[in-house]
């Protein structure tokens, strides 16, 4: 996440990044087994509220990211709503058949997409990439060449973007971006890809050689500049997430919004 967009720090920042990622990755698996629309509604509600409470992101940026996530969620639900299987037909127009079942299932998929985008944003906006990779090395014993490889590569992103804009300006000046259509897109993508790839590969190769020349090695007993450990925040984090999931399950039984307890039926 762009550091300039982060305006405040919440206790989510103090949670061990590797553990935070593990918990969030596990949540995805849990979500695959939820077929109850009510549970999905409450779960999305719970995590949406906790995102608003704990994110460090500036409000305007946050709004636009959520808005894009919302549009994406709607788009991902439309196919199922329009063309899904179902017996209780609500609306029909040629191939397009909206049934109660397909509508419920479509909403379920849309909510699921939105939920995991929000959870992903909660992670991204409260985790510093550098600390994440240091944590991977120290807590999960990820080999340093991978972690530092990632860090060095991410550091090149701004340079790559700058190059991208340079290429774009160069193409504009030569009038190469006027053509429209799929074929023009294809040639455009190819031109960008070759220019960006060749430059980036050269740069990456040089950086790797430079790192090894400065004695970057795989020796055991490496010391770290940032020491990442577990703390009491990790326990609070796990309890919070477990509590949110449990609350969503309980609320879906106590206050169901819809009659659809299994969207697969």
């Amino acid at each position: 996440m762009d550091r300039n967009w982060i305006i405040r720090s919440t206790w989510f920042y103090n949670v061990n990044p590797a553990l935070k990622f593990g918990v969030i990755a596990a949540l995805f698996i849990v979500g695959l087994f939820i077929h109850n629309l009510n549970t999905m509604i409450w779960l999305t509600g719970c995590f949406f509220v906790s995102y608003l409470l704990f994110t460090g992101l500036a409000k305007m940026i946050s709004f636009w990211l959520l808005f894009t996530a919302f549009i994406l969620a709607i788009l991902s639900s439309t196919t199922m709503i329009f063309f899904g299987k179902g017996d209780h037909v609500l609306f029909q127009w040629h191939f397009l058949i909206i049934s109660e079942e397909s509508l419920a299932r479509g909403l379920h998929i849309g909510l699921r997409t939105f939920l995991y985008t929000v959870i992903g944003m909660l992670f991204a906006t409260t985790t510093r990439p550098v600390q994440f990779f240091y944590s991977l090395m120290q807590q999960i014993k990820c080999p340093p060449k991978y972690a530092y490889g990632f860090l060095a590569a991410f550091r090149m992103l701004p340079i790559m973007y700058e190059e991208f804009y340079t290429i774009r300006a160069a193409m504009k000046v030569r009038g190469m971006d006027r053509k429209k259509g799929i074929k023009a897109r294809y040639t455009k993508i190819k031109r960008y890809a070759i220019a960006l790839l060749s430059q980036s590969i050269r740069r990456a190769q040089r950086t790797a050689v430079a790192m090894e020349a400065k004695r970057f090695s795989e020796t055991s007993g490496r010391t770290y500049y940032y020491i990442m450990t577990y703390s009491r925040y990790d326990l609070v984090f796990i309890i919070t997430i477990a509590g949110l999931v449990a609350a969503a399950f309980w609320l879906s039984v106590a206050f169901p919004f819809t009659p659809y307890t299994n969207v697969l039926e």
Partner: peptide, 15 residues
Amino acid sequence: LKLSDILVTIVIALV
């Protein structure tokens, strides 16, 4: 994989 392979691969992914 050597460091240079890893770095080049990740950079390709970022492109």
